[in-house]
Structures are given as C-alpha cells and as structure tokens.
C-alpha cells in the first residue's frame, strides 16, 4: 500500500466523499487540534518575532537579498518544520490511536467501507491542515514581520514536501500500535520535544554548536529545517538533508503500514 494507492483505493469506494467531508468537519470541531495544528506556528513566529529584540534587529548584510530583513528570518524555516512536527507527532497519532481505542476501525471493518480509507482520509485532511498552517506562517511572517521571500522557493518546497513524507511516516509508526490515544500522545511528545530542539526552536540553526548541528542533520526534522534554511538563503542545494529525509520516508512509511494494527 502506498500513499497514492490508499488515496486511489479510497476514491473508488462508495461514500468516500461523504466520509471525507464529515471527517474534515469533525476534525475542525476539536479546538486543541485547530489551535496547535493551524494557529500555533504562525502565532509563535509572529509573537516572538515582535517581542524578542534580537529577532527584530536587521541582519545588515549589504548587497544580499535579505539586506535589511529582521533576524527572525533565520527562524522562518524552523517554524515551518515545527508546523510539520506538530501535526505529524501530536495531532495525527492521537487521532489514529483514538480510532482504534474507540473501535471505529473495527466498526468500519464490518461495513463495505474499508478502515484503511478512514486513515487515508485523515492523512489527506492532516496534509491539507499542514498546508494551511504553513501558508499562514509564511504570509504572517512576510506581512507582519517583513521576512523576505525565499531565494530558492523550489528548494524550500522540496524540503517541505520531504519533511512532510518523513514526519507523517514517523507519526504513522507512532500510531501503528498504540492501544490508546493517551499512549500515542505520550510517545508522540517524547519524540516531539527533541525534534523541536533539533529544528532550532530553542537554539537557532546558525548558532547551534557544530556537534548538535551534525546530529540534527540526521534527524528527519533537523534535516528539514536545515534544508529549508539553505533554500531560504540560497545556500546551495542541501543534498545531504534531502537524502536523509528520503531515507527516513523510505524506511518508516512501509514500517508504519506493516505494523499498523487495525483492531
């Protein structure tokens, strides 16, 4: 089963449209999910960008595209990585484990709608939510804080897509066997907080110690943040980071699918 396979199989099943639309509505009714998945990244970026004096200082790099941009620009890729990590490690695994805990997957298995399609629908819903969160962060950062556009937007986009595939695969693996929503939440958080560290939330990427930067490069979320940083400042193609994210995806996604418990 590939992600594409899931979606196309889903489309062929009767009632997938109704299932998808209803699940999306129900998703939006969870205030926690809406806040952390959609609002938290842009709120964090804009609030800290306005409050922390160091973030407001212009970078003062004469002749470069970001010449007078505020220093918070270096934090933009980190916030995008944070958006990916938040949805994939906190929102999604809890939803999937709760479906299992409440018997939703088992119940669907007795109808003509395969439970795989519910998971497929939610992968799509969470990807859409992530796109909204990322767009809000970029637009908010550019309009409110004056963050300049990325030098290599395609590199940023590529790293963002790979970050999504790698981190959603990790989230799927977290959700694969957790018997309860609370245990998925606990395990997700255990990975989430170190991920924030490696993506530069607490120590911005350019000032990270070398050893930490090196470790970070091999984590999916660290590679994502570093790759997007390279794209934002036109710092060449982040080949190592791209390969790291690809590798995580290729390893974790099949593992998550294989280990996923439906009952």
């Amino acid at each position: 089963m590939s992600a594409v396979g899931t979606v196309s199989a889903a489309r062929s099943a009767r009632g997938f449209g109704t299932l998808f639309a209803t699940e999306a509505r129900v998703w939006l009714r969870d205030p926690g999910a809406v806040f952390f998945a959609l609002v938290f990244p842009v709120l964090l970026l804009v609030a800290l960008g306005l409050v922390i004096p160091d973030f407001r200082t212009p970078m003062d790099d004469p002749g470069l595209p970001w010449e007078n941009a505020p220093a918070v620009t270096i934090w933009m890729p980190t916030v995008l990585a944070l958006a990916v990590a938040t949805i994939s490690l906190t929102t999604m695994p809890v939803q999937f484990a709760t479906f299992r805990e409440k018997g939703v997957l088992r119940r669907l298995a007795t109808t003509p709608m395969p439970p795989q399609n519910l998971i497929g629908a939610h992968l799509v819903i969470n990807v859409l939510a992530l796109l909204v969160a990322a767009a809000a962060a970029v637009v908010g950062g550019m309009t409110v804080l004056g963050i300049p556009a990325a030098v290599d937007p395609l590199v940023v986009l590529l790293c963002f897509v790979l970050a999504t595939t790698a981190m959603f695969s990790l989230g799927l693996l977290v959700a694969a066997r957790a018997a309860r929503g609370t245990s998925a939440s606990g395990l997700g958080m255990l990975i989430y907080f170190p991920s924030l560290l490696f993506s530069g939330v607490w120590v911005p990427l350019p000032v990270m110690p070398d050893w930490m930067s090196e470790v970070s490069k091999y984590t999916p979320i660290g590679a994502a943040a570093q790759g997007m940083l390279a794209g934002w400042f036109g710092d060449g193609f982040p080949l190592a980071q791209v390969l790291v994210m690809l590798a995580w995806t290729v390893v974790l996604f099949p593992l998550g699918v294989k280990l996923f418990r439906w009952t």
Partner: peptide, 16 residues
C-alpha cells in the same frame, strides 16, 4: 468519534 453528530454518523454510514 465523540464529536460526530447523530445525523452525520447516519449519513456517513448510509453512504457506504
């Protein structure tokens, strides 16, 4: 799901 309404649940299952 706790947040789905009675109508919604019925319509989703009916659509299968």
């Amino acid at each position: 799901h706790d947040n789905i309404t009675v109508d919604e649940a019925m319509r989703v299952f009916a659509s299968f």
